[in-house]
Amino acid sequence: MNLRRFALIAVPYIWLLALFLIPFIIVFKISLSDTALSIPPYTPTLKDGFAALISQLDFENFTFLASDDLYWKAYLSSLRIALVSTILTLLVGYPIAYGMARAPEEWRATLMMLVILPFWTSFLIRVYAWMGILSNEGLLNQLLMGMGLTSEPLQILNTNTAVYIGIVYTYLPFMILPIYAALDRLDESLNEAAEDLGCSRMQAFWLVTIPLSRNGIVAGSFLVFIPALGEFVIPSLLGGSGTLMIGKVLWEEFFNNRDWPVASAVAVILLLILIIPIILFQRNQQKQAEAEQ
């Protein structure tokens, strides 16, 4: 093995070990240590070697998480919010992807760019844009009251509804692009064949188009679900005090309560919850890659 190849592998490898893997091990370690009122506010667990480590390991933070129902509720409510918003994003995104795939050839590059452009604009600004629209004196309420649909402003900002709108809005490109890619490859003569054989347009859509775009739907749904689960910015700007999401709980535990061991334990459990969807997503991507070869 020559030196150059070794350096080529070693440099990125060591970087990732030092700044990705080791930090995780530290989080894991701190989640197992006692809270202390010092800086750093935890007692080191690794101080006296391995034997002492085992005897000192302390699952207090995890039993604390299990006993305090705030955390259970936050995990469950994050799962629910992520799931509902993934379904909503699919319902909004599919017709757009479908429309793009059926659009005339010469429009498609432009439509594609229009979907990608918001992705390059600041996430924070896109979430912020909704604050002015959804607030009690905001444009949406002005519009609704102007049309006489409601006599007093609806409370939308600082509720879960606003969080759903925020997630659908910011993650929509992640849903549209994989579905569009699947629909674009789809041979339209299959639909025509189904219609010739007596299916209605609607039946052909359900029996041919949807199953053939399944991979795109699955990929898009994971791309929305996984980041939505740990989302922090959207619930803290658009959600209210009743919006429980685990990313926000972790943030508050860390910055407001300065309880590092509990924040680390929250992170470890969030990671365990995420592992299942991540593995499923990897499998789906691999299957798709194999199918293409």
Binding site: V27, P227, G230, F232, G247, L250, S264, L270
Partner: peptide
Amino acid sequence: VMPEVITGLS
């Protein structure tokens, strides 16, 4: 795929 809060914390 890592949530940003975890990367930041670690």
